[in-house]
């Protein structure tokens, strides 16, 4: 009972994930600022922003469904927090079971659907436009992402993240065997997080704020939290699936390696948002179905051939 509460609230549950997400946001903003010759925010800025958002007035336009609009970020937050319980952190896996990868992937696509619904229930024109864009984007990146993420599972012969990490311990990190799959997973993750350069649903100069245009105050704060936790969990997941060969190491070494891998992935994500421009939605769909899907299928074929 006590250990269950500890897992839920402190580690690897709520508190740890919130702290990680705030740190991630700060590091991301700081790196992006330095890439753009700016100074960037101080370390407490994400927390200050969150407190500010929670203390602000909560408004929605007339005709918007307040109850649904309040529930959507809460549902997304609980979905990502639950997903976080099943993702191993530096090899620490309290709730591992066969098939948890599928549960994680399912839970992590809940916020995208909630994001679309948020656009629809908050009745603004930009919100609806952004909502339909987010669904279009979902269909473009989700398929190559899922196909790519099934690569490690096929290679280790198990749908459990812990099992995948154990087989990496004997075979070496899967990024060596599936570099294309790793790149596809990073692209898919950027699309999932709606980060620059795939921030099409919330492109500021086109649809103002996307589905969240009409959101304010605490709801907006919750959405920010959801996005950042999702980003952190996505990075954790990629680290485990492609670089998680440290399961059998000394725990201290495993933690250090895990942190280094996390930082490298943050740099990759920030760098991508600094050097790429935003695609049009039709260009993204073309990229997703004409290039990313065939590439991911090729990668899977390669993995299956290797297994034989």
């Amino acid at each position: 009972m006590i250990s269950g509460l500890f897992y839920l609230l402190l580690f690897p549950g709520l508190l740890f994930q919130v702290i990680c997400s705030l740190f991630f946001e700060w590091l991301d903003r700081k790196l992006l600022a330095r890439f753009q010759r700016r100074v960037g925010p101080p370390w407490f800025q994400p927390l200050a922003d969150l407190i500010k958002l929670f203390s602000k007035e909560d408004l929605l336009p007339e005709g918007a469904n307040d109850l649904v609009a309040t529930l959507l970020p809460l549902i997304s937050l609980s979905a990502v927090l639950t997903a976080g319980l099943y993702i191993p952190i530096a090899g620490f896996t309290p709730f591992s079971f066969e098939g948890d990868l599928i549960v994680i992937l399912f839970l992590m696509s809940v916020p995208t659907l909630a994001y679309y619904l948020a656009g629809v229930v908050s009745v603004g024109v930009y919100s609806i436009l952004g909502g339909s864009r987010s669904l279009l984007q979902f269909f473009s990146y989700e398929v190559p992402l899922l196909i790519a993420l099934s690569g490690p599972a096929i290679m280790s012969g198990s749908w459990s993240v812990e099992q995948i990490m154990i087989s990496q311990g004997s075979m070496g990190p899967f990024i060596l065997f599936q570099p294309v799959g790793f790149v596809l997973a990073v692209v898919g993750l950027i699309g999932k997080l709606k980060r620059d350069p795939l921030d099409i649903p919330k492109a500021k100069s086109e649809v103002v704020g996307g589905p969240l245009t009409e959101f304010t105050g605490a709801k907006m704060g919750l959405w920010h939290l959801v996005m950042n936790i999702q980003a952190v969990l996505g990075i954790f997941l990629l680290t485990n699936l492609y670089l998680g060969w440290t399961k059998t190491f000394n725990p201290l070494v495993a933690v250090v390696v895990f942190i280094i891998e996390f930082l490298v992935l943050v740099v990759i994500l920030s760098g991508a948002s600094a050097i790429y421009a935003r695609l049009r939605i039709d260009q993204l769909a073309g990229l997703g179905w004409r290039i990313l899907v065939p590439l991911s299928l090729l990668q899977i074929g390669f993995v299956i051939l290797m297994g034989i």
């Binding site: 600094a274 790429y276 935003r278």
Partner: peptide
């Protein structure tokens, strides 16, 4: 550049 998302 900003309008096509190239803030850098």
């Amino acid at each position: 550049a900003k309008h096509v998302g190239l803030d850098t």
